[in-house]
């Protein structure tokens, strides 16, 4: 049996010490190249699960391992450039599309990575259904659907091993939502990217390596397909 890219063991979490638990003894195993969809109603802690994986929050008890190593032993910035988290509401800085896309390359941990050229950024914009967007225009003027795709593109530029997507379509109209789902499916099929997406929508991916989990009673249950 190969080593999972991500493993969660006996995870428990509550917002306050001694407070009501959001997760209790939660276990999860994610193989490289898998497409994980975590479903469940809003407010159950789906987003918190993703935030725990990239250490934007800390568990009360339990262990999370990335490539066999406990994530608490990895420098947070190194971990987050390998496990990229895209928030539910995409955030841009008040600058051009180009500056927003290249922002991660200004951080010390990513300095060794080569920043993409304008040509490759433009090509990617087309692949992300953003052909009408120019690199020099202000990112703040984009629609929420365009920002969401740009945020995913920005995370992908760092070539992370795992992409965590928090409700990527919750603020989008059906057409934009369809674009985002088709995009993330392609990232999984074409590039073999490991994805963990949480959603409360009825989306059901038709992918060979998709696994659907439901968050219920403070733990994850795998759904049979």
């Amino acid at each position: 049996m190969t080593e999972p890219i991500l493993e969660i063991q006996d995870l428990s979490f509550s917002y306050e010490a001694g407070g009501g638990e959001i997760f209790s003894h939660l276990n999860l195993r994610v193989e490289e190249g898998e497409f994980l969809l975590v479903k469940g109603p809003s407010g159950m802690g789906k987003s918190t699960l993703l935030r725990l994986i990239c250490r934007l929050q800390q568990p009360r008890t339990g262990i999370i391992r990335y490539q066999g190593r406990e994530i608490t032993l990895i420098a947070p910035s190194v971990l987050r450039s390998s496990i990229s988290f895209v928030a539910q509401i995409p955030k841009m800085t008040d600058a051009s599309v180009r500056d927003n896309l290249l922002l991660p390359f200004s951080f010390a941990v990513n300095k060794a990575k080569t920043a993409p050229s304008d040509e490759s950024l433009e090509l990617m914009l087309r692949n992300f259904y953003l052909e009408s967007v120019s690199l020099s225009q202000s990112a703040m003027k984009l629609s929420i659907g365009q920002m969401q795709r740009l945020a995913i593109m920005r995370a992908i530029l760092l070539n992370p091993d795992i992409l965590l997507l928090d409700e990527p379509t919750s603020a989008l109209d059906p057409e934009s939502a369809g674009m985002v789902f088709s995009l993330i499916e392609r990232l999984n099929i074409d590039e073999g990217k490991t994805l963990i997406t949480v959603t409360h929508s009825d989306y059901a991916p038709k992918l060979p390596r998709a696994a659907i989990y439901r968050l219920h009673e403070r733990t994850l249950h795998r759904e049979e397909r």
Partner: peptide, 16 residues
């Protein structure tokens, strides 16, 4: 907070 978390998520250190 959201801006800070966005940058942290992309590999920024807390100082950055």
């Amino acid at each position: 907070r959201d801006q800070i978390e966005m940058q942290l998520s992309l590999g920024a250190g807390y100082r950055e």
